[in-house]
Design a protein around this nucleic acid. Structure first.
Lengths: 223, 223
DNA sequence: TCATATGTGGTGTGGGTACTCCACTTACAC
DNA sequence: GTGTAAGTGGAGTACCCACACCACATATGA
């Protein structure tokens, strides 16, 4: 009994979890392949394609990542951390308005570089729950950034943090439509938007959605 | 032989084409049902759903509209005509800048009212060819509108007609992401953009895509 | 070397899609 | 009324998807 227990609890060195070395190698291959495939094709890419590109069987993949969402979560964990960390960089900028503009561009560029990440940020369901905390953290930091940027007098007073989500959605639309051609169009969109966020001569805008409304919009998707 | 020919070529009164009255009735039902289904669910809605809602068999539907694209083309023909005609209304406005703003809002509202039309304008493949002429007509009129709006001094000089397609893409992104909640978010996006198009204090923007690039982007989609 | 928990990949399943086949029915011309 | 081209719908096809099953292989501790 002691022996069985020892076997059951054994740990392999250097792996992410307690995996056999071959399993760990395949896990890494799967993550790498999925990262590529999702970046190219978005989250609509098929699991078969991921397994094929990783050079492992589909059953192996589903043993390691029981659902597609598990794989998505594993693949985009680091990008989501980078997303949450980016706002700290922006807050560290001595010029809050410059930090604000740079931040918006940077996040949109992260979307542009990875179709899958675009989807993760705007269009996907249960994955959203896994990244809830990171989203919240980024949101809070962004609110602070807004306060400071408004204080400089450059950011219009009626800007709200929900507008960032709106930007991500709009950017996602341009990016998916220009995935095969005119790939830089998003830069122009963001250029227009940022100039609109500059405070001068602001006419009243339609009301923004409330945060709960937007949160529901992010969750209710499934495609 | 004469008789056979007469039968083969016979025409039924009042129908769109030479259809039997029951066939014509079912055709109308299919169009109506498809209009509703596509408006609610976008072009991803299934053909089965359309047939079910029309109360006809799938075979009947596919006899009348051999491919999904044929149905889409038939359903959105009038909206595409309205789309092309809208720019004439805008040109008729004595204040070109007002006409420009109203036009942009109106087209975006057409998208907001019909998820299928949103897809038709930005995201779909062979349907695009069927509506090519109407797209071109709208594009030419819009270019004239731009010239006049710039002449008033209200529209920034670096605005190009490709930007309208970009707006449609961005709007499509917001609309699909907010289909279930926060449905009015698009109005705020358009508000921001229009204010950005007003010429004052325009910093240089990233280059727009060339028209051929954008055209390819519209055609290469398929989903 | 050996026992075995763990890992493996090919194949299968249930459900979705757009689209087709075919035996039956109906509207029309005469 | 009758012949028949035209129209009909349910069941079927081929293909995609995420995911499950299972006989076989292998890394590992003893």
């Amino acid at each position: 009994m002691q022996v069985v227990r020892a076997l059951h609890l054994r740990r392999y060195p250097g792996g992410v979890a307690d995996l056999r070395v071959d399993a760990e190698r395949n896990r890494a291959r799967l993550i790498t392949a999925a990262r590529e495939v999702f970046a190219e094709q978005g989250l609509d890419a098929s699991m078969n394609e991921v397994a094929r590109r990783a050079g492992v069987g589909v059953a192996t993949m589903f043993r390691r990542f029981p659902t597609k969402d598990d794989l998505i979560t594993a693949v985009f964990a680091d990008k989501m951390h980078a997303y949450a960390a980016a706002v700290d960089d922006a807050l560290a900028d001595p010029d809050p308005w410059h930090g604000f503009c740079t931040h918006v561009e940077r996040i949109c560029e992260m979307q542009a570089d990875d179709r899958g990440f675009t989807d993760v940020l705007t269009v996907v369901f249960p994955t959203a729950k896994a990244f809830e905390a990171l989203r919240d953290r980024a949101g809070l930091g962004f609110q602070e950034l807004i306060v400071r940027a408004k204080a400089t007098g450059h950011l219009r007073q009626d800007f709200v943090h929900q507008d960032m989500i709106m930007i991500l959605m709009a950017n996602a639309g341009v990016l998916t439509a220009t995935a095969q051609s005119a790939q830089d169009t998003w830069r122009r969109l963001v250029g227009y938007l940022i100039q609109s966020f500059a405070t001068e001569a602001a006419a009243p805008l339609p009301d923004p959605p409330t945060p709960p409304q937007l949160y529901r919009a992010l969750l209710r998707q499934k495609r």
